[in-house]
Design a protein around this nucleic acid. Sequence first.
DNA 1: TCAAAAGTGTTCCTGGTACACCCATGC
DNA 2: GCATGGGTGTACCAGGAACACTTTTGA
Lengths: 240, 240
Amino acid sequence: MNNEHSTLSFMPYTYEFPRPSITVDCVVFGLDREHKLKILLIQRNLEPFKGEWALPGGFVRIDETLEAAALRELREETGIETVFLEQLYTFGKLDRDPRERVITVAYYALVNLWEYQIRAATDASDAAWFTVDALPSLAFDHDRIVQTALKRLQGKLRYEPIGFELLPEKFTLFQLQKLYETVLGQELDKRNFRKKILNMNLLIALDEFQQDVSHRAARLYQFDRLQYEQLKEKGFNFEI
Amino acid sequence: MNNEHSTLSFMPYTYEFPRPSITVDCVVFGLDREHKLKILLIQRNLEPFKGEWALPGGFVRIDETLEAAALRELREETGIETVFLEQLYTFGKLDRDPRERVITVAYYALVNLWEYQIRAATDASDAAWFTVDALPSLAFDHDRIVQTALKRLQGKLRYEPIGFELLPEKFTLFQLQKLYETVLGQELDKRNFRKKILNMNLLIALDEFQQDVSHRAARLYQFDRLQYEQLKEKGFNFEI
DNA sequence: TCAAAAGTGTTCCTGGTACACCCATGC
DNA sequence: GCATGGGTGTACCAGGAACACTTTTGA
C-alpha cells in the first residue's frame, strides 16, 4: 500500500500528482427484539487497528460506483444482501488513516433484524451487533461517522417514512411506536401516536394478528409504499 | 493527466491499484436585488467541455482537506473569501468525466450578493451569475449537482436559519419574505410571515431604516445568532 | 395624486397534547 | 389472578390560515 517498500512491478499505476485512496464505510442499523438500536461492527484482522472494532467497508474499485462498493463490502463482510442504503457524508481529514491519505464516503443502512439473523462475516474476522449507547472504541474516525449517522437517522425518521425499513414487513403499532421512542430517545403517548399514524392513511390494517404472545394479540399492519408515493406527489409531508 | 502519453519522470506517483481522481465542485447561491436566486458558473477554458459553463471546482490536493479545497477553488476562481459552505453529496458515477474516473465531492455555498459584487474569475475564464430557472446547459453531470443543491437548499431553509446568509447583515422583513418566496417557490402571507418570524425572537429590531427608497422606509433587522444558539440548546426548532 | 411598499389584528379552524380505563391472553 | 400489552375518545389550547385597510415617501 505504501510506495516505499514495493517495486514498480507491483505498482503499475502511475500518476502525475499524488492521489488519496477512496474507501466506503457503512453504518448498519438494526432494531433487536428488545427494541434496542444496534450497529453492526467488524473486528479488524489486519493492521492498522488490528483487533479493534470498525465499520464494515473497504476500498472502492476503479470500475464500480460508490454505492456498488458499499453494497459489495456489506455482502462480503456481513452477508447482507438487500437493504435500505443511503449516502451519509464524505470524511476527508488528512490524518484519519495513519498509513496514508484516505477519503471515505460513508453510507448508512437500515436492516430488518426481526425475521432473520444477519450472517457473521464470511472471512475469519468477526462481525457483531452492538447497542448504540454501549459501543466499543472504534478504529479510525469511525466514532465520528457513527455519531453523524445517528443524527441523520434521527432527523430522517421524523420527516420520512424510513422507520419501516427496520421492522418486518408486517408489524404492530406497538413495535412502530417503540422504534420511534428508541431512536428519537423520547416517550410518545400511545393514543396520540396511533391517531396520528393511522390518520396518514399510510398503513394497511391486515386481518392478521400476532401469534404466540402472552397477552392479547395485536393487529398487524403493513406500510403502503405506493400510497405514500402518490400522496407525496400531491404535496403530502410525512411527519411524526 | 492520462497515463498513456507521459513518461515516468512526469508521473512519479505509483500505486498498486488504480485510483480515481478526487475533485470538489461548488454550487454558489446568491440572491440579487430583484429577488432572483442565482448560481455562479465558470466558463471552462480547458478541455473537456471547453467553452461550456460549469461549477467552480477542481482537484483536491493531497495535503488539504475537502473543505479547504472547496474554499481554495472558490477563492481562485471567483474571488469569494468567506461564505457559508456545507458539504452536499459525493458523485461517483463511472463515466461522469470523459477522461477518466473522477469522484467529486460537491459543496454548496451561500453568499451575500447585496452589498458587493463578486469579482469575476482571476484567470482568463469568465465567471457569471445565472438565474436558477434559466441555466445554460452544464458540463459533466453538473446539472444533477445543481438540482441536488437546490433541493437541499429548499429543505434546509425551512428548518434552519440559513436564509440570512443570502442577505446583508441588516435587512428588511420584506427582503426576508421575498427570499423565502423565491427559494421555496410559493407566496407567503405578509402578516402571518411577520408574526411568525418576530415571535421567534431571533431578530433584533434596529433603530435604522432603509435609505433612498421611493416609498416608506422599512425598519432594518439583524439576525441574532447568539440567541439562536441558546434557544437551540434548549430544544427550540426553527421552522418557517 | 400616484405608485410602491410599510405596517398592523381578529376570527376561524385544525391539529397537537394531556389524560384513564377496560379487554384479551398466557402463565 | 396477575402481568403484559391491546385498544379506545374527549376536552383543551396553541398555532396556522385567511383576510383589508391606512400610512409614508418619492417621483
